[in-house]
């Protein structure tokens, strides 16, 4: 549990950070909240020679509503997400989900950018961002580009992010007022990654679903946007038969690993149970 030697950098702008990444190439890693990278370094599973601490980059902080989009700076901490009046009013599922990430001490340090960029399938925010159809803003030597959360994840720790790029912000389309939402997470204890978790965003028109979006956490080597399940639920009245078919469709796309949280079969089934419970709660909220 002792890291190897590294050189510590603390740039004050995105441009400076990118230029450090460019000049050190594969030997450099950006440091956000550090709750994934530092333990990996202590285990010597990661041994970057240059650590580029982003906490001095003021431009990466803060949240604002721009038109019909909410833009959140990558270095915004999960604690700040939990306590943002803007998010509580417009995107309460972010607070609900963030409160299930680890524990308060970690949330003071952990950031939205680090959580979505690291590519750890156990992280809660990537699945949520897929559910919300968020877009990540990436800055690199050639300027900025945007990648949808649903296209960002390739495999565990492999993403669309190039080695010399940074995630600078997350853009989320503001859902309509009165939408229903829920994040259901089964975990062994506080601080654990999900055995399985499901994010649901739903709008209702009377008893009928007018839009629905479903994503799953930690039941494959990437977060999973459950397109088919979302489609089945869309336009339905959430009757038992439809929910059963949607749950089956969601379970069908899972490919969980067996680990201390349980065998693959269990984790797949728990993805289904979490989805069913999230749907019920989200629909209740949408109707309320």
């Amino acid at each position: 549990m002792i890291p190897g030697e590294f050189i510590y950098h603390r740039p004050s702008s995105v441009a400076e950070a990118v230029s450090l990444l460019v000049s050190h190439g594969d030997e450099a890693r950006p440091l956000a909240g550090g709750h994934s990278l530092i333990p990996m370094m202590k285990l010597r599973m990661a041994a970057p020679e240059h650590l580029i601490d982003l906490s001095g980059v003021a431009d990466l902080k803060g949240m604002q509503e721009v038109g019909d989009t909410i833009v959140i700076g990558a270095m915004t901490t999960q604690h700040e997400l939990v306590n943002s009046d803007l998010l509580i009013a417009k995107l309460p599922i972010i607070r609900e989900t963030s409160l299930m990430i680890a524990d308060p001490q970690i949330r003071y340090m952990g950031t939205i950018g680090g959580n979505v960029a690291n590519g750890d399938p156990g992280n809660d925010l990537p699945g949520l961002m897929q559910c919300l159809n968020a877009v990540y803003v990436l800055a690199g030597p050639d300027g900025e580009r945007e990648v949808a959360a649903r296209d960002f994840y390739e495999a565990a720790y492999f993403t669309a992010l190039a080695p010399e790029e940074l995630v600078t912000a997350v853009k989320i389309p503001t859902p309509p007022a009165g939408h229903g939402f829920a994040y259901e997470k089964l975990k062994r204890k506080v601080g654990d990654y999900a055995t399985a978790a499901a994010a649901v965003l739903v709008t209702m028109s009377g008893d009928t679903v007018s839009s629905c979006s479903v994503a799953l956490t930690n039941v494959a080597d990437t977060p999973l946007y459950a397109a088919q399940a979302s489609e089945i639920l869309n336009g339905s009245t959430l009757d038992a038969d439809t929910v059963t078919r949607a749950v089956a469709a969601a379970e069908a796309i899972t490919m969980p690993a067996a680990d201390g949280r349980g065998p693959a079969e269990y984790r797949t089934k728990m993805a289904g149970v979490m989805l069913e419970r999230a749907l019920a709660r989200a629909a209740e909220r949408a109707k309320g």
Binding site: D103, R188, K189, V190, G191, D192, D259, G260
Partner: peptide, 15 residues
């Protein structure tokens, strides 16, 4: 297996 507090169940006050 499970030789860290990630997997070795040490309950917190919550559990």
């Amino acid at each position: 297996m499970g030789a860290s507090f990630m997997d070795f169940f040490l309950p917190t006050a919550v559990e």
